[in-house]
Simulated scan of single mutants.
Amino acid sequence: MTYTEVQNALDRAVTEHGVPGIVAEIRHGDQSWFGTAGVADLTTGAPRVPGEHLHTGSSGKAFTAATLLTLEAEGRLTLDDTVEHHLPGLLTNGYDGTRITIRHLLSNSSGLFATGLAPEASHRYATRSGYARHHLDQWTREDLLKLAISQPPVFEPGTAFTYSNGGFYLAGAIIEKVTGNSYADEVTRTVIDPLALTHTHVRRPDESGYPHPHPRAYSALFLKDGTDPAAVTPENWQSLMEDPATPPLDVTELNTSLGWSAGDVVSTTTDMIRLISALASGSLLPEQQHHHMWTTISTEGGHWMPYARYGLGVFEFDRDITNGLILRGAGGSLWGSHTCTIATPDGDHAICLHTNTEWKTWDIVFDIVKAEFGKGM
């Protein structure tokens, strides 16, 4: 089996889209392949290598969803429990905790606003000068729960889709309330340990580095000088960004506690393939919970990835662009890192890709997936 087309797609990510370095690991049956393009370090020119520790961004939402689904299987909660039931009095500012369920939180259909655009957070990192002052700031659980409801609802629960980290902050708080344990401990108990993800961990609140080996992380995700972060919307944010030709900033040393239960997991491509293969195939969760995870909703109008439907912390590509092939996955992006892992429903064929910069374009993902799975994406 050859991977020339995948390698060509990796090369294009560097030459055409300006990615500093990219890797892809593939597992198909008992065969595996690892390919790279670009570099791990722009200063030294060091290559990217297997086994690198990577920030998985919003792929952490899959860990959160799997943890809550395990708690449901254990009889400790149900997906139709309301936020008010577990966190009484927490939701204000127009949110009705008696109408928002755990299922709504995990499917991004709760009506919570797009938390990533909250000025209280974005102003700290929106410009290079702001990033320099705030990149080691530590966010507490209380900070994040306040942030989640700092703007009013954008729709009635269950009626639409908006990608909201805030819903997953609430999900993390419910995990802690129900179990009496930390979010990190429960993710380890229910997901990391059962799957033997030996190079995966939820980051500590004060953590800002990575185990060896790891690539340097580079970001160009900054607003133009003088831009008011409060003016940024899902519709206009791209037009307010810096010139793409501006040299990237090294953001390897970064406190990512802003992610918490919405995505603050460090892993490797090998471990992520093991995770997503298990979630896609149903080998981690009982049948009922597996069905819940992959019951998807439309993301149309939600300013998210095109040609995909959202489950619980995971996505499934629209079958009309894959010639009927079912492809399931999880992904995430933040300053200096973008990860996407995709598998077939039997878990037998999977790919994980990572760039040491944030999301540039969906063309990179679709180009690589098309090269590997050979479908009309």
Rank of each mutant, 00 (worst) to 15 (best):
G172V: 01
T344N: 11
D96I: 07
D264M: 06
A62K: 06
M1H: 09
E300T: 00
L170Y: 02
G38D: 08
T98Q: 09
T162K: 07
L42N: 03
S257F: 03
S129E: 12
Y210C: 10
G51L: 10
F315T: 00
V178S: 05
A343I: 01
A371L: 07
T36K: 12
G89A: 14
S122I: 00
N93L: 08
M1K: 15
A46K: 14
P215R: 10
H303T: 01
D250R: 02
T296N: 10
A126T: 07
S129F: 02
P247W: 03
I102N: 03
S208F: 13
D225A: 14
D96T: 09
E5L: 15
A9R: 15
H86P: 10
G209A: 14
R124H: 09
S58G: 12
S298E: 13
T341C: 15
W33M: 09
E358M: 13
S32H: 11
L105W: 05
T227P: 09
V178Q: 02
L334P: 02
D318E: 12
N93C: 04
H104Q: 05
A278N: 05
L147K: 10
V83A: 12
G332P: 09
G301W: 00
T2E: 15
T233N: 11
G97L: 05
Y218N: 05
H199L: 00
S239D: 03
S208Y: 07
T190W: 13
T246E: 11
T270C: 03
D271L: 05
T270E: 13
Y210K: 10
T198S: 12
W260Q: 00
G332M: 02
Q31C: 08
E235R: 11
T98H: 09
E207K: 04
I22E: 08
Q7T: 11
V187L: 01
A160Q: 14
